[in-house]
């Protein structure tokens, strides 16, 4: 009984929300699971479409027309004059648009979600263009837009950067320093081992910080010889 009512409530009377949820999930899954950056952007667009549809469906009213005044409510133009002359026979001066009554308000769809989505669509196009430009730039720099290959290339670039003589020298100097410190502490005695164990990790942290500084020049080196991909 409970389950049956749930099914009718959700899948029959509110089928539109189910469709938007499915669309939204397709977009979300594409953004999470796909490895191609362009496919991720396609997922983002699908996600956006689901939200736009959701907003527009909220604006729907049964037996209502679009949010543009019908001829009899039109505040402007020839129709309006005829109607107001019929209504207010005594008045000479043209027409006065009147505030609509609540019953008439129900006859028009809700304009607010339409306005919000109108701007959202155009701004969505602009941001999609920006995202595509970034993707194109990534392709120019690394020769790929597959996330796996991109991460591989970045790792390799980091590796090579860490092999460079300057970084090597720095790292050796740090190692020597830490070894000396450890020796000095061991000589002082009664130092907890956790302290010395913590030292090397901090050293590696410093090393990692030094790497990105070097990586741009190396990535440009990889850029110079792009791998031909089938």
């Amino acid at each position: 009984m409970e389950g049956g009512s749930l099914v009718s409530e959700l899948f029959i009377e509110r089928l539109n929300y189910c469709i938007y949820v499915v669309l939204l999930l397709i977009g979300l899954w594409a953004m999470l699971a796909k490895r191609n950056l362009v496919k991720k952007l396609i997922g983002m667009s699908i996600f956006q479409t689901a939200i736009i549809l959701f907003y527009v469906s909220i604006a729907v009213k049964k037996d209502a027309t679009i949010p543009i005044y019908l001829a009899e409510h039109d505040p402007h133009g020839s129709h309006a004059k005829v109607v107001t002359e019929q209504n207010a026979t005594g008045k000479q001066d043209a027409y006065h648009p009147v505030e609509l009554k609540p019953e008439t308000v129900k006859g028009y769809a809700n304009p607010l979600p339409h306005v919000l989505m109108l701007t959202a669509i155009v701004v969505g196009v602009a941001t999609l263009g920006l995202a595509l430009a970034l993707t194109q730039r990534i392709y120019q720099g690394y020769g790929t837009i597959e996330e796996d290959e991109l991460l591989d290339k970045l790792d390799r670039a980091d590796e090579r950067a860490s092999q460079s003589p300057i970084v090597k020298e720095k790292r050796n100097a740090q190692r020597r320093k830490s070894a000396q410190q450890a020796k000095a502490k061991a000589a002082a005695g009664s130092v907890s081992k956790s302290n010395t164990a913590a030292k090397p990790s901090s050293v590696t942290k410093g090393k990692k910080k030094a790497q990105p500084k070097k990586s741009p020049s190396k990535t440009s080196a990889t850029k110079a010889k792009p791998k031909p991909k089938s």
Partner: peptide, 20 residues
Amino acid sequence: PVSSHFIANTGVDTEVPNMV
């Protein structure tokens, strides 16, 4: 009240038939 106000008063305030 916001959207009802827009529907009811757009004609009075601005004389624009297209509420959007």
